[in-house]
Design a protein around this nucleic acid. Structure first.
Ligand SMILES: [Mn+2]
Ligand SMILES: [Mn+2]
Ligand SMILES: [Mn+2]
Ligand SMILES: [Mn+2]
Lengths: 222, 222
DNA sequence: AACTTATTTTAGTTGAGACTAAAAATAGAA
DNA sequence: TTCTATTTTTAGTCTCAACTAAAATAAGTT
């Protein structure tokens, strides 16, 4: 078994590897972990001793096979608990992350197996992120960020990048949710802002918002 | 917020206070916590600094009002989670304690409020122990241990003292469960063993078993 | 009361995981 | 290439929660 801190660092490195290719900088890890670079170095070295990461000083860090396995297991637990909180306890999707940050560290294979079954083997969490299966396989949907779409394209909102309460509440207020059909009506080239259509309503959204919405593009006949 | 270790010590002291009156000996705490007396002293002194316990060196420890409140909140969480594990995830009653030991430390008022509602505000956990309400009130039933009952008395099994897997499986094997009606058919004065009747069947049980079964005594007409 | 034993506390270490400050390495600019 | 700014690592310190060994206190026995 690994400690809570070890699990959190592994998960952090895993998420960073999803976004960038190549070794992860110590500073990036420290920043995401809300800690100092020296603390990150410290932990990275411990993880390297345990062969959970490959680490070359000054060069960066990457997860080993075992490191990935541990990280994915934690992500699986996190997302399953988020589903539980929303589906069974009726939390809003912006309220569950902090609690799942705690629940993801509960150690019991059997618990997760049964929770997964109780939830009817969900494929996605409330934010549209895929839930790894028991063997660590992650169903990856080819999605693009809304800001990369062009005029008149349309698609389904399948996920969000940001998960802060403020952002999710911003979406709620506009009734934009996972599964919403979104059409790009116009793009302002100067600042990347957009006019989009969701159901009957049209919204102006900044580039910053558009960069945090994952869309599965629909083609003509869909 | 208190640390996991602090919560565990407070809960431990709480349970000891339920069984004995007066200040709790350091050794008793150390023993229940599976640690050394010196470690217990250390933590007790920290708890005393935070005014969670009243402590007089060499004399013993007792919980303050605040200490009781923290302990009861942890017990509430522990028992609610046990109900969840048994009622919703279909665990056996002997499998849930270890997992609940972890879940009881999850920090979220809202989570417990919603879990309680989801479970339909249960009064007792799977082992027959009362679940404190949100304000810390514990419904105490006057129960006695089976070994204190006399011949021909009968009652309902309302709780177990031991919660080890071996003991609970022993009961399962004999189909003795919370709610079972038990009648004392005979007592052997030499060793305190008993012959009891449960439904249609009769069992011989040792004094040790009888001391770990809590019974609500039924009178003549019940 | 004095001696012996059991309990409890103190003193000193350890490891995990954080921190600050200083040193070392790397990358970018001149 | 050499200087400078940035990144990263090392060294040393801190707190929490455990440990062992030794000292202090309490309890029990003769
Ligand atoms: Mn989350
Ligand atoms: Mn999520
Ligand atoms: Mn329990
Ligand atoms: Mn219980």
């Amino acid at each position: 078994m690994y400690t809570r801190a070890e699990e959190n660092y592994l998960k952090c490195i895993f998420h960073l590897e999803q976004e960038q290719k190549g070794a992860i900088a110590t500073n990036a890890i420290a920043q995401m972990m809300n800690t100092k670079a020296s603390s990150a170095t410290d932990m990275i070295q411990r993880l390297a001793d345990k062969e959970l990461v490959a680490y070359r000083r000054y060069k960066g860090t990457s997860l080993t096979k075992e490191g990935v396995a541990v990280a994915v297991a934690v992500v699986r637990k996190h997302r399953l608990w988020e589903v539980f909180l929303v589906e069974k306890l009726n939390f809003q999707w912006d309220e569950v992350h902090e609690i799942a940050e705690q629940l993801e560290h509960i150690q019991s294979e059997e618990l997760i197996t049964r929770l997964d079954k109780f939830l009817d083997h969900p494929d996605y969490d409330p934010h549209g992120d895929p839930i790894p299966d028991k063997d660590g396989n992650i169903k990856k949907t080819e999605k693009k960020v809304l800001s990369d779409m062009s005029k008149n394209q349309q698609g389904i909102l399948v996920g969000v990048r940001e998960t802060s309460g403020e952002f999710l509440q911003y979406l709620d207020k506009r009734k934009i949710a996972i599964g919403s059909k979104i059409k790009v009506l116009g793009i302002e080239f100067f600042d990347g802002s957009m006019i989009i259509q969701v159901k009957e309503e049209q919204f102006f959204i900044s580039k910053k918002i558009a960069e945090n919405l994952y869309i599965q593009v629909l083609h003509k006949n869909q």
